[in-house]
């Protein structure tokens, strides 16, 4: 591993009395693909949102590419340009066409010229396989296509790091594959990626490391073979068994650390 592209240390985050993150330490190297898994309410989405400061950490530090985001004097807009983010609900701009979704941020934020922005947009739409949808509006696209446009929109800004917040959770099952294919392509191209996901197949085959979170802490961190293949902790085993075979789960009491902010 070369120098860490993302470094999180001693990260705490509370929403009122609800402690969602209780001391997270994590390093992600350049070109590494890390999948974060865990039950809902475990804080994995909050952790991801802290990495580009969409959520303000209560305590602790976040570094991306050597810049400390938690420094109060940091130009957060400048740092965010280097961090691409993909949301569960796509969040495309519905009043703009697909191409405009890609060109407007480039022109307004990066001050790129019209021709350059259009060129970058076309190139990235081609990468995600949606060149022919350039003039469509988001509402006319399927969920899978919208998510690929959202990825292209983030890529058009030339990010060094990509964050994915459950990118396939809102998709119909048959559309998941297209989005994962794009993410796999990015991974093989050497993009540094942090992916919150429930797609165990993707985690197993594409991730360099898998991080299992529960109750606001990292329980296990290792290669997919270690964490998914041979989990050392009972909580990991329990989660994986429920995820891989949900029909076999039994009714159980809610425990307090599983009840967190709903995602």
């Amino acid at each position: 591993m070369s120098r860490p592209e993302i470094r999180v240390s001693g990260l705490h985050k509370s929403f009122g009395d609800n402690q969602v993150l209780r001391g997270i330490d994590l390093e992600i190297g350049q070109g590494e693909v890390v999948c974060v898994i865990g039950p809902s309410g475990s804080g994995k989405s909050t952790l991801l949102r802290c990495v580009n400061l969409l959520e303000e950490p209560t305590k602790g530090q976040v570094f991306v590419g050597g810049t400390e985001l938690t420094d109060p004097d940091v130009d957060i807009d400048a740092v965010r340009r280097r961090i691409g983010m993909v949301f569960q609900q796509f969040n495309l701009f519905p009043h703009l066409t697909v191409t405009e979704n890609l060109t407007l941020p480039q022109r307004r934020v990066l001050r790129r010229g019209k021709a350059e922005a259009a060129g970058v947009a076309a190139e990235n739409l081609r990468r995600v396989g949606l060149a022919e949808k350039a003039d469509a509006y988001p509402s006319s696209l399927s969920g899978g296509q919208q998510q690929r446009v959202a990825i292209a929109r983030a890529l058009a800004m030339g990010p060094e790091v990509m964050l994915f917040d459950e990118p396939t959770s809102a998709l119909d099952p048959e559309l998941v594959g297209d989005v994962l294919a794009v993410m796999r392509m990015l991974a093989t191209e050497g993009m540094t990626m942090m992916v919150v996901t429930h797609e165990m197949t993707f985690a197993r085959e594409v991730a360099d490391r898998v991080v299992f979170m529960d109750g606001g802490v990292i329980v296990e961190d290792g290669t997919p073979g270690q964490v998914i293949g041979a989990p050392r902790h009972e909580r990991t085993r329990h989660f994986l068994s429920r995820l891989l075979d949900p029909a076999m789960a039994e009714v159980e009491e809610e425990t307090s650390d599983q009840v967190g902010k709903s995602e």
Binding site: L54, D77, R80, Q89, N91, F93, P105, A154, M157
Partner: peptide, 17 residues
């Protein structure tokens, strides 16, 4: 929707822009 502002901010837009 709130996600619109979040998407814009994550692309590097300032709040005003």
């Amino acid at each position: 929707p709130k996600g619109q502002m979040e998407a814009a901010r994550s692309l590097g837009f300032s709040p005003a822009r």
